[in-house]
């Protein structure tokens, strides 16, 4: 059997590589969104803890 010519094999190779990169990209995008949301919440909560600590310090004086 003769190997497939470039114009026939090319779309298959491109399709496989695009599928691979697309799946990785979608995964990374989902994880990045979750991570950003969690980090934002974490910084808000840390800020809240600091505010509470400050107010309790003020009440203690």
């Amino acid at each position: 059997m003769a190997p497939l010519p470039l114009h026939t094999a090319g779309p298959y190779v491109a399709g496989a590589y695009i599928a691979f990169f697309l799946i990785v990209l979608i995964y990374v995008a989902i994880m990045a969104t979750k991570l950003t949301r969690s980090e934002r919440t974490l910084s808000e909560l840390t800020e809240q803890v600091k505010r509470r600590q400050r107010s309790s310090d003020d009440n203690g004086r």
Binding site: M1, P3, L4, P5, L6, A9, G10, Y12, V13, A16, Y17
Partner: peptide
């Protein structure tokens, strides 16, 4: 590839 040609790149 001598047998599969460019397709083997997958």
């Amino acid at each position: 590839d001598a047998y599969l040609g460019f397709l083997q790149k997958i």
